[in-house]
Design a protein around this nucleic acid. Structure first.
Lengths: 219, 219
DNA sequence: CCTGTTAGTGACTCTCGGGTCATTAGCAGG
DNA sequence: CCTGCTAATGACCCGAGAGTCACTAACAGG
């Protein structure tokens, strides 16, 4: 029973960095760089402040390591099979959107997003690699879906093809809104998602002849 | 000529608060609360640090005063005559969108937006009043426009009516994108705006019979 | 021009928190 | 069980920057 009351210190060189990083991500996401406190991180990681400096030479270094680690983990869970999926444009778009919301709603991606907004100018290279891996990549994926849709006669020609990001913008708004205004009440997911899908379907597809509204019910 | 080289101190009780606030807004917008430096604000306002404390009891108080002032000024320039404007739904929506972009692109609203994202949890009451005056107000305005459009047979029934915010989401995305990724190249306004208008028009309007695409050219 | 009032100053204090290091103690190997 | 290595500690150091205050000087009124 002594372990419970004593909680002696253990030497666990291997496990420390990961634990410190995890506590660091939480702290930095919650408070931003300046307001993050090293002793709070230490306490959360179950160690003393000095121990942090055994593994990271400065707060800045810990921050960079934490963000990098987080970026990698978020990007990793990002690898949907969507690139190779084939189907109707409506199916592909709906699937893409659902994947994006899933990440934002239930994922740890939100913490990273918040850090990037808040501390972006401190870590320009992280921001730019994030930009490349999400916005740029997502945009070109979207553009490919839409252009394929045009070829198949499903998607109408429009200025949207030049700015495909616009299709996912409402998802970003959703995340940002729930981040900023959680006190005033979050947006309800199901209803919002349905509205988004409808906006995109109506906004992007051709409107002659074939209806596509049934695809809205089965998302 | 001595005024130029000397720049003696003057006693100007009336003018000080406004000058301090102005410098404060710039500093807080640029660096956030923690990284904002009072002596930098003082220098920008052309006074000494002690003088700030003649008018504001603490950094926190100055921050609150600056944000409040800024909110008021941004809200004031917000008062478009749009509430009373009457016309086709397409015209009203396009006008509303143009107004929103105008504020974000050329206005000081962006600085406020950034402050609210970054320091939001420090000033919950400011956030909630901002929320009321922009999101809530804009949402109900939008809902009115759309419902009127439904009555007039211009707008299709859809889930969007329950989440009208989605219509302006791309504008927020635009602002956020240019805020975060300015290094990687900003989105080009004209092209993006056109895409947004087209998405909304196609996404919201009825598609039976009458075409509305001509309204896209004349925005 | 003198003088009282008070806007304004800037050198000072003091707290907070990042970073250090002498000391303690867990553990492997003999 | 001893002993040397080093993970871990936490009391301490120190700089930065918020906040103070004794002093200076602008200006109004007489």
């Amino acid at each position: 029973m002594t372990e419970l009351t004593k909680a002696k210190t253990r030497r666990r060189k291997e496990a420390r960095p990961a634990e410190i990083i995890e506590a660091g991500i939480a702290e930095f996401a919650a408070h931003g760089f300046e307001r993050a406190r090293l002793d709070r991180i230490a306490r959360a990681a179950g160690i003393s402040k000095g121990t942090i400096y055994l593994y990271y030479p400065s707060k800045e270094a810990l921050f960079l390591a934490a963000v990098e680690e987080h970026v990698i983990s978020v990007m990793a869970e990002n690898e949907t099979a969507l690139e190779t999926f084939e189907g109707s444009t409506a199916e592909m778009l709906t699937g893409l959107l659902r994947g994006i919301y899933k990440r934002f709603v239930e994922g740890r991606a939100q913490a990273l997003f918040r850090i990037l907004i808040t501390e972006g100018d401190r870590i320009p290279d992280v921001v730019s690699s994030y930009h490349t891996m999400t916005i740029k990549r997502g945009t070109s994926l979207l553009r490919r879906i839409l252009e394929r849709g045009v070829e198949r006669g499903e998607v109408a020609e429009s200025a949207i093809l030049q700015n495909p990001q616009i299709v996912i913008a409402p998802a970003v708004f959703f995340a940002l809104h729930n981040m900023m205004f959680s006190a005033a009440g979050e947006l309800e997911f199901d209803s919002y998602f349905e509205a988004h899908v409808q906006l995109v379907m109506n906004g992007v597809m051709r409107h002659d002849g074939a209806q596509h509204s049934q695809s809205l019910q089965q998302y």
